[in-house]
Design a protein around this nucleic acid. Structure first.
Lengths: 206, 206
DNA sequence: AAATATACAAAAAACGATTATTGTTTAATT
DNA sequence: AATTAAACAATAATCGTTTTTTGTATATTT
């Protein structure tokens, strides 16, 4: 009632060392056993802390799991953002994102989770919230590409962001949708065509 | 050993009235109870036939379920194909496909299945085989659009098909990916831009 | 002020015994 | 020649019970 520092659930701060410990332990457990077989007691044991502390920072198990994945995604976005800084064009950036994303799917927490609970992973992938968090990621890069003239300034940023997101998601989910786009060069060439001209002209330099 | 008419599993002919009866009963059961709670005995009872007949035409339960969904998809593709015949442009066709696809997801067998077994539906949606069957659907329309000049003849048919499929799948799966594309006009305008110009110029008539 | 330890009822998971279903086979029926 | 009916072992689902886990509360420790 008199608490001021009450952060019930919204926006956990990853800087809090206790939160970090909880998430570390939680991620470790999920990585090893999957979500279903991970109990709050086990997380507490692994993180050498009390169950009470977990419930202080995360209201319930679902929040904890969500917290683990949100942090992973945040880390992924930060890491990717850094990589993109070094790349010149929007197409390069998108290509890199897809390659990065695929790698994460193969090697990250999703890969191990997919082995024990593929349905859960499938559900996460189809949840629009999973992508909505990344929507704020692209607009700066879109604007930059408009300034350099790589893409038209007439297309509004939201629309361009939408397309780029759809392509990224589609390419990570389905490396092959008729045409095999598993190698970086093939992927880049495809994205170059689609982003810059769609299916309209200028496939070759005309 | 001496059987000539042996069609073990590959390509069931929907014309065979027994096969149709089995599939009808199977679909009815899946629609009502979901896959998990549908037993071969129940399908037999509903279709007023013997379990043996089912096992003659479909090797196992998985094959039967697959058969039901394959037939549904074939019907959907045929129906959609017919609708597309009446439409002038590739963009119109793609728009119609998405609207049709969304309707099927809302009202068809998937909608009811999603209520009882959402994870199963999610798994089906992420299975590339689910889409591979539709790959042969688009190429004729692509070529037609190249002839009329709607899209460039320089882009090869496989690539164009791939993009059209990706857009269709993405739009049905995620009506909103930053920009809301739930209404037909909004959807068509978006697809028009993406298909004809990508994010390159000519957003307005230049 | 936050973390811990403990206790507690309600909900969920694990368990073992029982029942139902699967997939195969075989003889009888259409 | 295909469909049915019946029997069968192997597998999977269900049920009622026991155990664990969850989420909350409270007193104690750091």
């Amino acid at each position: 009632m008199t608490s001021v520092t009450n952060n019930q659930f919204n926006s956990v701060d990853y800087d809090d060392p206790m939160v970090a410990r909880i998430l570390d332990a939680g991620e470790q457990c999920i990585h090893r056993f999957g979500i279903r077989r991970t109990s709050m007691g086990e997380v507490a044991r692994v993180g050498r802390l009390s169950r009470g502390s977990i419930y202080r920072h995360f209201g319930d198990k679902e929040s904890l799991v969500e917290g683990v994945f949100r942090r992973r995604q945040a880390l992924f976005l930060n890491r990717t953002e850094a990589e993109l800084e070094t790349l010149p064009t929007l197409v390069d950036k998108l290509t890199e994102s897809v390659v990065s994303g695929r790698k994460d799917m193969r090697e990250g927490i999703f890969a191990s989770l997919a082995e024990t609970e593929p349905e859960t992973v499938a559900m996460m992938f189809l949840d629009p919230r999973f992508y909505q968090r990344s929507v704020s990621f692209w607009p700066p890069h879109i604007r930059m590409a408009q300034v350099t003239g790589e893409i038209s300034a007439d297309v509004d940023v939201a629309t361009a962001t939408d397309l780029v997101m759809r392509l990224a998601v589609s390419m990570v989910m389905f490396p092959d949708m008729g045409v095999t786009l598993k190698t970086r060069p093939a992927l880049k060439q495809y994205l170059q065509q689609v982003i810059c001209h769609g299916l309209g002209g200028a496939a070759s330099s005309r």
